[in-house]
Simulated assay, not measured.
Amino acid sequence: MADIRIRGLRKSFGGMEIVHGIDLDVRNGEFLVVLGPSGCGKSTLLRLIAGLEEISDGEIAIGGRIVNRLEPRERGCAMVFQNYALYPHMSVYDNMAFGLKLRKFPKEDIRRRVEEAARILHLTPLLQRKPRALSGGQRQRVAMGRAIVRNPKVFLFDEPLSNLDAKLRVQMRTEIKKVHNTVKTTTVYVTHDQVEAMTLADRVVVMNQGLIEQVGPPQELYHHPETRFVAGFIGSPGMNFIPCKLVKMGDGLSVNLENGVSLAVPAERFSRYAPYAGKDMLFGIRPEHLPVDTGDNRPGFATMPVDIDITEPMGMETVIYFFLGSDKSEHKDVMEAPFCARIDPLVPVRQGTRVQLSVDMNNMHLIDPSTDKVV
């Protein structure tokens, strides 16, 4: 195992800079997930760590050793790609052993390593099968086994579950978590799937346009995002962003929405929000913090009438998409992405009707649109 230290890392292709001066520390034995949309630079970052791309500027150290000029095989990293890249004519055993054979490991050492990796990954009954006789999830486990037998300092995963169906993705997330809990190898895992990030990571790095937006434990990013991008990217469905004005009301503050609804700000936030009184802001609220109002007047909650546009019964919950106000023509600016709430599936709701939602202001976020920072 080893830690990873990255300072001032840049990567350009031609005249276009893809990674913009990243600083990042990966702790020894940590499972770090790099999360972001396509094109944000996350896979490039992984390839720079592995040595598959040459850095334009900056420094990468693995286990305290600067590896900028080292070949990939000298860095102590093992990489698992979304494409399994298994040799079709070889058995599972031979696929896992192949790299060790090239390095002239003793046969008994190879056998011991392969059998131990097969035990961890539940591949023992499959060791004599060819890849064509395996499912997608089994093939990905073989690819992981091929990495494990090398006993690397660092595991690098590049969207390894992208080619699997939804059910297999859930199963493989569990397998990867179990493997990490067993072998404790420092792991950097790249994905665009925020569910994978939230369920697997010790810490998540959220990237956007070649920069790191925020680093932290999954729950910290969910409950305390620092930017609008992180707030919107973490969570499914994503956070609602509603234009508003922060208004001083006597000794308190309120969020006034464009449709005339006024929502009282909890008292514990007054000091933080007070400098923004009178300014146009964005009110952020997650769909799960918008239940249907039950009339019980809970502290920190406010009511908001909405017009239901679409309902999506999901079994354990109903997702509703809505507009603020009775006339959709008033909301042309949000027609492509109406707001969203997750409500109790037992509450009867119908498309085209109006409902009162209860807004959990204890979980509100206020974003300054001039900086896209969460206040």
Results as ranks from 00 to 15, higher is better:
residue 24 L to C: 04
residue 39 G to N: 08
residue 322 F to A: 10
residue 210 G to R: 05
residue 45 L to E: 12
residue 234 I to L: 03
residue 358 S to A: 15
residue 177 K to R: 14
residue 135 S to F: 07
residue 242 I to V: 14
residue 107 K to E: 14
residue 16 M to T: 15
residue 60 I to L: 07
residue 196 E to H: 04
residue 280 D to C: 01
residue 365 H to F: 09
residue 29 G to H: 00
residue 219 Q to P: 00
residue 255 V to D: 11
residue 219 Q to L: 13
residue 64 G to V: 10
residue 110 I to W: 01
residue 294 T to D: 15
residue 73 R to N: 13
residue 33 V to P: 05
residue 38 S to K: 00
residue 127 L to Q: 05
residue 217 P to H: 06
residue 359 V to S: 09
residue 47 R to L: 03
residue 7 R to N: 13
residue 126 L to F: 13
residue 64 G to F: 02
residue 341 A to Q: 02
residue 138 Q to H: 06
residue 297 N to D: 15
residue 56 S to E: 03
residue 104 K to V: 00
residue 41 G to D: 12
residue 338 P to F: 06
residue 185 T to N: 06
residue 206 V to L: 12
residue 171 Q to V: 14
residue 53 E to H: 06
residue 234 I to N: 08
residue 64 G to I: 07
residue 195 V to K: 07
residue 37 P to M: 05
residue 322 F to N: 13
residue 82 Q to M: 02
residue 121 L to Y: 01
residue 10 R to K: 13
residue 242 I to D: 04
residue 361 M to N: 10
residue 84 Y to G: 12
residue 219 Q to W: 03
residue 86 L to C: 04
residue 337 A to F: 06
residue 353 T to L: 01
residue 40 C to L: 03
residue 243 P to G: 05
residue 83 N to A: 13
residue 356 Q to K: 08
residue 130 K to D: 14
residue 243 P to T: 05
residue 32 L to G: 09
residue 252 G to P: 02
residue 64 G to A: 03
residue 120 I to N: 03
residue 190 V to A: 09
residue 278 G to V: 07
residue 145 G to P: 08
residue 356 Q to P: 02
residue 131 P to T: 12
residue 6 I to H: 07
residue 346 L to S: 15
residue 171 Q to K: 02
residue 62 I to L: 03
residue 15 G to I: 03
residue 105 F to V: 01
residue 16 M to E: 12
residue 341 A to V: 05
residue 55 I to G: 05
residue 201 A to C: 06
residue 350 R to G: 09
residue 139 R to V: 09
residue 258 E to H: 10
residue 140 Q to A: 14
residue 270 F to Y: 15
residue 11 K to D: 12
residue 233 F to V: 01
residue 133 A to G: 07
residue 267 A to S: 11
residue 223 H to T: 14
residue 18 I to A: 12
residue 180 H to G: 11
residue 284 G to F: 09
residue 38 S to F: 04
residue 261 V to S: 15
residue 229 F to A: 08
residue 249 M to E: 15
residue 348 P to L: 05
residue 247 V to Q: 11
residue 279 K to H: 13
residue 177 K to I: 05
residue 234 I to E: 11
residue 247 V to G: 02
residue 263 L to K: 10
residue 294 T to I: 08
residue 11 K to L: 04
residue 114 V to R: 04
residue 296 D to M: 08
residue 93 Y to K: 01
residue 325 G to C: 04
residue 147 A to M: 12
residue 42 K to V: 09
residue 223 H to A: 15
residue 187 T to R: 04
residue 206 V to A: 11
residue 199 T to Q: 03
residue 331 H to E: 14
residue 351 Q to D: 14
residue 9 L to A: 06
residue 156 L to A: 08
residue 180 H to P: 11
residue 178 K to H: 13
residue 14 G to R: 00
residue 369 P to H: 02
residue 243 P to L: 04
residue 180 H to F: 10
residue 324 L to T: 12
residue 13 F to V: 07
residue 210 G to L: 06
residue 95 N to T: 12
residue 334 V to E: 08
residue 332 K to A: 13
residue 294 T to A: 10
residue 207 M to Y: 06
residue 293 D to P: 05
residue 259 N to L: 00
residue 159 E to G: 12
residue 313 P to I: 00
residue 60 I to C: 05
residue 120 I to G: 01
residue 356 Q to E: 08
residue 20 H to D: 07
residue 60 I to N: 05
residue 212 I to T: 11
residue 280 D to E: 15
residue 185 T to S: 13
residue 366 L to P: 03
residue 269 R to E: 14
